[in-house]
């Protein structure tokens, strides 16, 4: 009987994993998110302390493959920034970024009754990250003379008075790659603008050193970071739901590992 725990068909595990991920979505299972990570809190506080109408720049450096982890962060941050009556500028250093930006901004702004061009703008994609980051330091018009829909940014009320990093309260990079490092080196370094990031769980450990040195003021770490942020702004959404799936799946894997070990020890002892 113990052998059964040792070698059961892996398809049984597949079925359980599928159930673990589907059920929280079907049942709208919301698990309590636990204590908030200080890095998440730091980012929240930084936005909370900006005076009204301060521009916040969010860089969308991910694509469809990064969506499950990073997009909930984008939506939660957008909601927080717009509801605080700050100005929101979206840029993309990844080719796949602009649709992500458009989706996050437009869906949230419908809820909050905010206007494109007045409260937020999607400036679109520009290649060569380092060059773009540096150009914004000189004048944002050099990098982004037009927004994603090819309207001159001088005609948009949201861009009034914004020239370079001196006018921007905070830069947040949402990324699946190594662009946060570029923002730290080329934007925070020479221009001293505050930089924060939202990254996938796998990437997060690479950025702990920047948080320790204060080069980065806060960071959202994977789906958990998104769920924590949703809790802070009191609007539970995809992050919280996804976290339900995550928790169940993690527990399930640990359960399977435990079963395997119980089977293993019982089996070897009997032999």
């Amino acid at each position: 009987m113990w052998e059964k725990l040792l070698f059961f068909d892996r398809r049984i595990i597949f079925v359980f994993i599928a159930i673990a991920v589907w059920v929280p979505f079907l049942t709208q299972l919301e698990l309590p998110p636990g204590q908030t990570n200080p890095r998440t809190q730091a980012l929240y506080d930084a936005i909370e302390n900006l005076p009204p109408r301060t521009p916040v720049m969010v860089a969308f450096d991910y694509g469809p493959s990064g969506m499950p982890e990073v997009h909930p962060m984008a939506k939660a941050l957008t909601r927080h920034i717009l509801s605080r009556n700050l100005r929101l500028l979206g840029v993309a250093l990844a080719l796949t970024g602009p649709p992500m930006c458009q989706d996050a901004f437009s869906s949230v702004s419908q809820d909050l009754d905010k206007q494109e061009g007045v409260d937020w703008v999607n400036l679109g994609y520009k290649p060569q990250p380092v060059a773009v980051i540096t150009q914004i330091g000189e004048d944002i018009r050099r990098a982004f003379p037009e927004d994603a829909q090819e309207r001159a940014i001088d005609e948009l009320p949201v861009m009034a008075g914004i020239h370079n990093y001196d006018d921007i309260g905070l830069v947040i990079d949402l990324a699946t790659g190594n662009t946060p490092g570029a923002w730290i080196v080329y934007a925070h370094g020479p221009y001293k603008v505050k930089v924060a990031a939202g990254v996938t769980g796998v990437m997060a450990t690479d950025y702990y050193p920047f948080l320790q040195t204060g080069q980065m003021i806060g960071m959202l770490n994977g789906l958990k970071g998104a769920a924590e942020y949703e809790e802070l702004i009191n609007h539970r959404d995809l992050g919280t739901l996804g976290m339900g799936s995550q928790s169940v799946a993690h527990l399930l894997i640990i359960l399977f590992v435990t079963l395997g070990n119980v089977g293993y020890f019982a089996f070897t002892r009997r032999r």
Binding site: A18, P68, T200, G222, H250
Partner: peptide
């Protein structure tokens, strides 16, 4: 252990698409 979350997220992404 650190990668598990990211991999489950990928499946969540597909589930969200289908749902």
């Amino acid at each position: 252990g650190n990668t598990v979350m990211a991999r489950i997220s990928l499946l969540i992404g597909r589930v969200q698409f289908l749902l």
